[in-house]
Measured scan of single mutants.
Amino acid sequence: TQSIHIEKSDTAADTYGFSLSSVEEDGIRRLYVNSVKETGLASKKGLKAGDEILEINNRAADALNSSMLKDFLSQPSLGLLVRT
């Protein structure tokens, strides 16, 4: 696993530069990185398409609903625990 911390203040970007997809496997919801913008903040921090997001801001990914995800992604900083 890899811990990634991203700050939007690093650039004038209003997004982190990646998209997520939610997949249900064996009754457990998993979050995967769908795509990463080549010039985006997430790419600079090493996030890659296909990575599994285990935690966002110290909250287990399978416990997050879509409104919580939207809220986290609109925050000025983001902490991710990722399995590559």
Rank of each mutant, 00 (worst) to 15 (best):
L80S: 04
R83G: 06
E25Y: 08
A12L: 10
Q75S: 12
R59S: 10
D26H: 08
S3G: 05
Y32I: 07
P76G: 07
I53Y: 02
K48P: 01
G27S: 04
V33Q: 05
T84R: 15
T11G: 13
S21P: 00
A63Y: 06
D62E: 11
G17W: 01
D26L: 09
D26Y: 13
Q2E: 07
L31G: 03
S22H: 13
F18L: 10
H5I: 11
D26P: 04
V33I: 10
G50P: 01
Y16H: 04
D71H: 15
K45R: 08
Q2T: 13
E52T: 00
N58D: 05
Y32R: 05
E7G: 03
A13K: 14
S35H: 09
N34Y: 06
E52A: 02
L69V: 14
I4S: 02
I6K: 00
T1W: 07
V33C: 06
D10S: 10
R59K: 12
Y16L: 02
E7R: 13
S66E: 14
A13V: 11
I6E: 01
L54W: 02
E24K: 11
E25K: 12
D10T: 07
N57G: 02
S74V: 09
R59M: 14
S21W: 04
I28A: 10
S43P: 05
K70D: 15
T84S: 15
A61P: 14
L81A: 05
I28L: 09
H5V: 09
L54Q: 03
D26F: 07
K45Q: 10
I56T: 00
E52H: 03
D51P: 00
V36F: 00
S67D: 15
S35N: 08
D71P: 03
L41N: 04
D62R: 11
D14V: 07
T39H: 13
T1H: 00
V23I: 08
A42Y: 00
K70C: 12
I28S: 12
A49L: 10
S9N: 05
G46C: 03
L78A: 01
S3L: 15
M68C: 12
K70S: 12
R30N: 01
E24N: 11
G27K: 07
D62P: 10
A49Q: 11
S66T: 14
I56L: 06
R83Q: 08
K37L: 12
S21N: 11
A42M: 03
V23A: 07
A49H: 07
S19N: 12
A63D: 14
K48H: 08
L64Q: 00
K44V: 08
E25V: 11
D10L: 06
D51A: 06
L73V: 05
S22N: 09
L80Q: 05
S74L: 07
G79C: 13
N34E: 14
M68P: 01
E52D: 01
K37D: 15
L81P: 04
K70T: 12
A63L: 11
E7Q: 10
E24A: 07
S43C: 12
E55G: 02
I6Q: 00
G40T: 03
V82R: 04
Q2F: 15
E52W: 02
E55L: 04
E24F: 12
V23F: 09
E7H: 09
T39W: 09
L41E: 09
I28N: 09
S43E: 09
R29A: 08
R83V: 04
A13G: 14
I4D: 01
D71L: 11
G46Q: 07
Q2Y: 15
G40R: 02
S3T: 14
N57D: 09
N65Y: 04
K70W: 06
N34F: 03
L81F: 03
H5C: 08
S3C: 12
I4A: 01
Y16T: 02
I28K: 13
I56D: 04
D62K: 11
N34I: 11
I4M: 06
A63H: 10
D26M: 09
Y32P: 03
S35L: 05
S77V: 05
I53P: 03
E55C: 03
L54S: 02
T39M: 13
R83A: 14
S67V: 08
T15C: 11
L20W: 12
I28T: 13
I4T: 02
A60H: 07
Y32E: 05
D62H: 13
D51G: 01
P76W: 09
A12Q: 13
G79L: 15
L73K: 07
S67R: 11
N58P: 07
S66W: 13
L31D: 05
L54C: 02
G50W: 03
A61S: 09
L41D: 05
I56P: 02
Y32V: 09
V36Q: 00
T11L: 10
T15R: 05
N34H: 10
K70Y: 14
A63F: 06
I6F: 07
V82Y: 04
F18V: 11
S35I: 04
